[in-house]
Design a protein around this nucleic acid. Structure first.
Lengths: 203, 203
DNA sequence: TGTACATCAGTGAACGCGCGTTCACTGATGTAC
DNA sequence: TGTACATCAGTGAACGCGCGTTCACTGATGTAC
């Protein structure tokens, strides 16, 4: 009896999780193309195929949904990046850089959401803390690489600079008008490789 | 007679220009702190001390006002940067980098507006063209410097990378939470200097 | 097994608001004779 | 110089809309006896 009850409850719980994921994934789909302010709850509901009111059964408000969506995507992205870096033990810095920007370029929802955190100026401190966790995670990845290369001085500062530089390439050129996607990808990759070359001088 | 008429017309014209500047400067004041979507025409009117309807005597719509405001600020910023670079003939790359980010940091309306162009995704092509002009102008400044330093290969690519890297530093760290303005400035300057050091290797 | 009641996810419709923008008007200034 | 008319910058109030969010309800499912 108790067993059955638990099973049912677990079923319900997993159904609930599935619905929640559906909403999150719908919002990520939209946040990839448009900014936080230009994506509406009605848009998200429509993509998810539910009513706007339903979203509020799962999330407090739009802000919370955004943060949850970011965290969800961040976990996936960070995990994959770490795996990518770990699996190829003898990657050059250029490999790292190009893989990093290329992966972000391909999964542009994550990057778009990240820039919202960095530029909005109207985000609650608690949400920013969640974002910073992710940022620190990515910086740690770079730290790990530079350490392996024997860097001892200014390790974190170097990671900051490298991370920021790659971000800058993404932001400055990933929406360059009048070029098609493949041209942009090539340009971004070339710039990432160049940055890595330049950084290799001091490593 | 004709002379007097012309004078009066010129007076009127200059009054009109003054009002227009007032509106532009009010909008710049607001766009410095908040994003395009979160600044309203009523906000701008209030700062300018006029009625919202008046803005439409000077600008077609909010988009046009934004582009005009950006161009206005861009002219000032670019002019000053060029002068700064030209007046100090023997600046190191680190001087250039630090002055660049520090100046942008101090005039953050320009940078905030620039990132809107780079990240929004909902801007008309004609407006983007205006923005690109400014971007090219800044890239030309870096080109000039690298050329002077004897770079011949991949000149434009190097400028792209350097410009993007400095942008990245600004975007990634200029709104870092929990640090005061001076701490942020110091961090940004240090990163800019580090990037310059790194780039100096290949120059 | 059948019946009466409880729960709760889902939702259509509405609320209240602030937005970009327009309209119809005012009143100061300029022009003509 | 005085008067009648034209111009036009400026604006308060309104329009229509879409937003985030809430409410009151439905109807499917679970529970108790």
């Amino acid at each position: 009896m108790v067993r059955k009850k638990t099973t049912l409850m677990m079923l319900k719980e997993s159904e609930r999780e599935t619905r929640k994921k559906l909403i999150i994934e719908s919002s990520i789909f939209l946040f990839a193309k448009k900014s936080f302010d230009t994506v509406s709850m009605r848009d998200i509901a429509m993509v998810a195929g539910i009513s706007p009111a339903s979203i509020y059964r799962y999330f407090e408000d739009k802000d919370e949904l955004f943060v949850e969506a970011f965290s969800y995507k961040a976990e996936e992205i960070c995990g994959n990046l770490e795996k990518m870096f770990d699996e190829n033990k003898n990657m050059t810095l250029a490999d790292i850089a190009v893989n990093f920007v290329d992966y972000l370029f391909e999964h542009d929802s994550f990057f778009q959401m990240m820039t919202h955190f960095m530029t909005s100026g109207t985000i609650k401190d608690i949400s920013l803390e969640r974002f910073n966790e992710t940022e620190r995670y990515l910086l740690d990845l770079f730290d790990k690489y530079f350490k392996k290369m024997g860097v001892t001085q200014n390790l974190r500062l170097l990671s900051h600079a490298f991370f920021a530089a790659l971000n800058g390439v993404m932001i400055t050129f990933s929406r360059y008008p009048g070029r098609d996607k493949e041209e942009i990808r090539r340009h971004i990759n070339r710039l990432a490789a160049l940055l890595a070359d330049v950084f290799s001088c001091v490593v």
